[in-house]
Write a protein that binds this DNA or RNA. Structure first.
Lengths: 228, 228
DNA sequence: CAGTATCCATTTCGATACTG
DNA sequence: CAGTATCGAAATGGATACTG
């Protein structure tokens, strides 16, 4: 039995949303992912079997539609699913205010880069192709390199050097880059006090903050700190 | 491992809220329940061991405070906990719009009466003591009787005849009474088409709808029905 | 009143490998 | 690309009884 046995609409909603991963899958769909392997990138720790099961369940409930796009599966939110946006926003707003401590296990360079990639502000980029290189270092000593290759048409994320010279190179602890993306600290604070370094021409370095839109939750107001 | 391994605030929030029953406990606290057995009445299908565990967990996380009120335990939401109200409201709003089908197992007369009791509109009641009797019949043939005894000071819910004569007697299928409470149907529609009957003086019968505030979600707009 | 204690059935999930 | 298949470990939580 998975129901709560209550007529309360909060309970009825939670019967659907309290299953592990479900809300994150919906978040991914709201963020514009539509294909199975695209969704997987947003929930990398979820097994494909479980993702498949959740998608089937959400489809049955009427939150997701599975479309056949010329032999390719495409997942879309139904109107009911799209109306979960305020729920997801409320959850995120609360999390920004009250779940501020990130453990090392919450930091994930691939997930971060995937988010950043989705939010490159193409209008602010120079014409032609722009490459931005990232070097992210983890607490455990790991280090990973990424390249965003932005053209007028699209933005590609690579984990290998694409060959073209980078306009800017961003070197930072993974935690710092994550906090910038979340809006916990500004680009300039990150440079002054959190080990972020920009390498490139002065004009390009200056333009970097405008090239990236931060997380939709970056502007959430944080609670006032308690008086000491 | 129960975390999602993501820095996303939605994920961080769901790490807390996706545990079974947790949101319903928070809903009860938001509704004004503060003591263990009071909370239990709002989540009757939850075992006391589990409620205890959830309360401890919520306390550890900083959503709930456990106060010692002269030897009696009292649970209060912290500021972070109170700020979950928008989340709970968003969940309920969505549920009213999209989770409209209630199974027989979602109907619970005790839970319903407990909700109704909490929302008696004392200002609208006649002076002195007012007794309202309910007779709720279930699909399975069960039937239960309840009495609300309202005075200036308090409202008591009894499952036995308190002796004083009832100003009004409300006889209805449990499903109908539940739907009225949820705002799915009006008092008058319930009488015309869903088997609800009011017994008592004309003036009292007419006054009944003003005596009860309905669920906070009763006014949520329902989605337009799809064209046939 | 406010919980604990115990115990086990069930579920759930993660890991891994595999397929049309 | 878009999933299924399989399997075992872990945890979850429901039922029931008990306690200071």
């Amino acid at each position: 039995m998975h129901g709560y046995g209550q007529f309360c609409p909060v309970a009825k909603t939670m019967e659907v949303l309290d299953e592990r991963w479900t809300v994150l899958v919906i978040r991914e769909l709201l963020s514009g992912s539509h294909h199975f392997n695209e969704l997987r990138r947003g929930v990398p720790r979820m097994s494909p079997a479980l993702l498949s099961k959740r998608l089937r369940n959400l489809t049955r409930i009427g939150i997701v539609m599975r479309l056949d796009e010329g032999g390719r599966a495409r997942y879309e939110l139904t109107p009911a699913g799209r109306e979960l946006a305020p729920v997801v926003m409320a959850l995120g707003d609360w999390g920004m205010r009250w779940m501020t401590e990130l453990g090392d296990e919450d930091l994930d360079p691939h997930l971060l880069m995937w988010d950043i990639r989705r939010n490159v502000n193409r209008d602010a980029l120079p014409d032609g192709r722009t490459v931005v290189a990232f070097e992210l270092s983890e607490a455990r000593g790991g280090r990973s390199n990424w390249w965003l290759v932005a053209t007028a048409d699209e933005v590609d994320l690579c984990d290998f050097d694409p060959g073209h010279p980078a306009a800017v190179r961003i070197v930072a602890p993974l935690r710092t880059m994550t906090r910038v993306w979340r809006g916990d600290i500004s680009w300039s604070a990150a440079q002054k006090a959190h080990g972020l370094r920009l390498e490139g021409s002065t004009s390009a370095r200056r333009a970097v903050p405008s090239w990236f839109n931060l997380s939709v939750f970056a502007t959430v107001e944080r609670p006032a700190l308690a008086a000491p």
